[in-house]
Each structure stands twice: as structure tokens, then as C-alpha cells.
Design a protein around this nucleic acid. Structure first.
Lengths: 251, 251
DNA sequence: ATTTTTTAAATGTATAGACAGGTGGTTTAT
DNA sequence: ATAAACCACCTGTCTATACATTTAAAAAAT
């Protein structure tokens, strides 16, 4: 498998949210973006530690930490004497926690795309306020995104976001990054909860997911905290026939 | 919570298999042994990096790597300025462990009872053998238990068990203990996986759960390991209208 | 007695340098 | 031509050092 041209490794940090992160974390973000965006293909050899050192002027130990952690997370495979390669598919460990649908689809080797159906700034209704742990009329964003796997609808993502914690949410280009990526960059998740249910979809949802009214759906309601604040609350609806939630625990 | 006496940190590497491992890995092994053996209790503060450095004469970066990885694996919790502490029992076990349905129902203040529908000794079919990671015709047990919450059916538990690892499974009184309790006692779970899906129930399942054919169900397939062996594989089916799976992650 | 400042300790990150060990290609000796 | 020696490169680990940040307690000022 061919190597990756290290001609423009200096561009590595482009397209990255400029959150204040340690160098090793920035490196991880940049490299995982290269992989999930498909710029670095499975089994390709990626630049060696010393190449990154030379290109970016950071220490090898810093690069080593980024690559080691990405390897532990299943993004990379390393072979002593040979090099570092993009792994076949993501290890199933973190799926319950992370749940970035784009990454998940990419990990299966499939094509992901999404349609932005709603993106608006608003004042929280009483129900939304309760859900986010803020006062009624607190500034929020609402978004509805339809995700596709190989052009089949696979998730309706309804989300409300605390505008104080993610002020530029409505200025994001959701065709480039998922909402998850932006939110993690501005308000890294420290805690979360999810509620999984099997439900029947509404007529609108049937139409969006292109399924029949009788097809059960997996509904995941998830809230994520950054410190003591709730950053976002999402409702993710998947067609039962096209989706499984996989989890792994233990050591 | 009291600190751990660092009087005999030199003993840290005792009781360890003398495999040729890197120092950081030996450290991880030793510390996780202290924790799992109960010598270092939950919430206790463990020796600081510099204390280990002084006691063992290794570099702080090496100690740091061991502690950092153990933290990522959930054994430890670290607070800058404070120290490193033994973590609470894995959060995620509490979350997606529907294992003990009896406890869960009791925790809600409701009445739990169960009906044993099937309990038999058998030889593994090819499918069952694949599922348990054994050869066809390997000895197994099959059980089907119907669980009730306040006299409403809430779970069908279909389970196959590796007879080698749990030889007395068929002699248990499942009105006294759940299968989970017995299995944990004979073959403590070290690893597990689950697969969550939304499906429509079969006619038999509708009857058992007393629901309509159109009601979606939450299906959880779970396999649990003890070391390298699969102890049991279960299929848990819940009526969507009466069941939610709740999970919490983070600290 | 109360508040403020300082200090010590602990973790978090970054760096430079060193050596070990694996891999594959090149050169050299046979 | 074949085999052995060599070498360049890569990952894996370990060390020593440095500085930043957080925390709690001690010391100093009010």
C-alpha cells in the first residue's frame, strides 16, 4: 500500500477548530480527521514520527503519544521497523461513548453524508429548558440533521444546544464537520447519559427515514455535560432494520 | 479518605508473574493488582508519582505513563494538585448491566417475580457453538425465563451457558437467585459485549409479553467472558412500552 | 480573627537525548 | 550468483529536565 505524501504535512492543522488544546491532542484530532475524512486511506502508511517532528518542529515523544493513543483507540496500527498504518476499522470500544455517526459509518467502510433540515436560534421552551438545565427563554440552537449511510437514511438527529456554551453553533458547516466534532472542540464532554428505547416512528419520521410505519426504531436520547453544564441534548432515531448499537466492556 | 502508607512501596512488584515486560507495564500490573485484590481501597489516595520515583528509582515519565493509562482504563482518578485515587467501580458496569433485572425492579420499588419456562441440558448446535466459541456438540444449558415487574411481563431472557464453566447451572433454583448471580459466582465476568436492536416480536413472544404484534421491542444480545472463555450468551427481549435502557458515563 | 499572600506538592505537558530491537534494502565477501 | 554483513529507518521504551496549572495548607498582613 502506498505511502502518504508528506509534501504538505505543515497543513496538518488546517480545518481544525482552534480550541486551546495540548499539542498531542491537536495532533490526534488532526490525524483522526485525515482518517475519517478519507484523505488517509485504510492500510496506507502515514508519515513516520521523525517526519512529523521535522515538519512541525515538535518533540518525538509528543508525536509518539498522539500515535500511541490513536493506536489504542483503534485508528492506527503500528509495526516496529515498518511504520504506522491506518487501521482497518475502529475498535468497538468507544462506540457507546463517542457516537459520532460519521466516524461510525466511515469505520464500516461506507459513505456518509448528511442533510441539514433545520438550524435555528431560539429561546428555550419550558420543556427544552428543563432538558438543558437552563431557564425558560435561555438562548439555544435547534438543529435537525438527517444522516445517510450509502445514501440510505440511517439517523435523524434532533439536537438542542446551550447557546452560551457553543455560541457559534449556527455558523458551522455541517457538511464538513458533524455537530459532535464542533461541540467537542468548544466544550469537551466530561459526562453524559443516554436513554435507549424501542419506539414506533411518527409519519414524518417514516418519510424521512424511508421506512414503513410498522418498522420499529431505536431511539437514543443523549445529554452531555461539560463540567456542571449541559452542553447539548440530542434525540437520535434509527431504523431498527438498519442499525445496531454495539458495546463492549471489561478490560 | 486516608492515604496509602508508602512504607513498603518496594514490595510493589511482589506477587507478580516475572514476565519480561516494560517497566511501565509492570507498574500497571502491580497497581491494578493492588486495586483488584482490595489492598488499595476505593477513593484511597495512592502514592504520588514522585514517591514512586523515589521508592523504585525509575523516571517520573515512566510512572506517569502507567498512571495515565490506568486512569484511561478506569482504575484510577487523578486530580491536579491533589493526587491520584482509586476509582469507583466501573461506571459503565452499572449502566448497561441489565444483568440483574430483579435488582433493577427492586430499585424502582416494584415487585419482581419470574417464571422458568425452559431449563435443559443439551449439545450445542452449530449456531450455538459459534455463539459460545465452542465446538458443535459441546455441552451447554439452555434456559428461558420470563421476568415480571408488578405482574407485567417485562423481559424474556433466553440464555445458553457453557456447561464446562458452569456445571451446576441446571441445578439452580431460579426463583431464589437470578442466573446472573450464579454465573458471576462460578465464573466472574471479565469482559462482555452487547448488541442493542429494535425489532418486532414473534407471535410467541407477543403472547408471553402480553403485547400486540405491532409493538416494538428492545432486544439486547449479550455475551460475557471469563478470561478467554465465553461463559454465556443471552438474548433479552423487552416490550418497548415498558422498558428503557439507561446509561451514564463520565465521572 | 480574618483576609491575603506565599509556598509546597501534585499532576499535565513538552523537550532532547539515548538505546534497544525489528525490517528491508544495499553493499560486500565468498 | 549467493550468502553474509552492513546500514538506514522505524517504532518502543526510558531518562532527565523544565515549566505550567491546580490545590490546599502555611505564613503573613490586615
Amino acid at each position: 500500500m502506498s505511502d502518504i505524501t508528506n509534501s504538505n504535512l505543515a497543513n496538518l492543522f488546517d480545518d481544525l477548530p482552534d480550541a486551546p488544546l495540548p499539542i498531542y491532542a491537536k495532533l490526534k484530532q488532526a490525524i483522526s480527521l485525515k482518517i475519517t475524512s478519507g484523505q488517509w486511506q485504510v492500510n496506507q502508511r502515514i508519515p513516520s514520527e521523525s517526519e512529523v517532528v521535522k515538519a512541525l518542529g515538535v518533540s518525538r515523544m509528543t508525536v509518539n503519544r498522539a500515535l500511541r493513543e490513536l493506536t489504542a483507540e483503534g485508528f492506527l496500527v503500528r509495526h516496529q521497523g515498518l511504520g504506522t498504518f491506518v487501521a482497518e476499522k475502529k475498535a468497538h470500544s468507544a462506540l457507546f461513548e463517542v457516537h459520532n455517526i460519521a466516524e461510525e459509518v466511515a469505520a464500516r467502510g461506507h459513505k456518509h453524508r448528511s442533510e441539514l433540515l433545520v438550524l435555528e436560534s431560539a429561546k428555550a421552551t419550558m420543556e427544552e429548558a428543563m432538558n438543558l438545565g437552563v431557564r425558560t427563554n435561555h438562548g439555544i440552537f435547534r438543529s435537525v440533521v438527517l444522516h445517510f449511510e450509502n445514501d440510505f437514511p440511517i439517523q435523524i438527529e434532533e439536537r438542542i444546544v446551550n447557546a452560551n456554551l457553543a455560541p457559534d453553533y449556527d455558523k458551522q458547516d455541517f457538511s464538513l464537520h458533524t455537530s459532535y466534532e464542533y461541540l467537542m472542540s468548544v466544550a469537551p464532554m466530561t459526562e453524559g447519559e443516554h436513554l435507549v428505547e424501542a419506539i414506533l416512528p411518527s409519519p414524518v419520521e417514516c418519510e424521512r427515514l424511508r421506512i414503513q410505519a410498522s418498522e420499529p426504531c431505536l431511539q437514543i436520547k443523549r445529554r452531555t455535560w461539560a463540567g456542571d453544564d449541559i452542553v447539548t441534548a440530542a434525540r437520535l432515531l434509527h431504523p431498527g432494520s438498519r442499525f445496531q448499537l454495539f458495546g463492549h466492556f471489561g478490560r
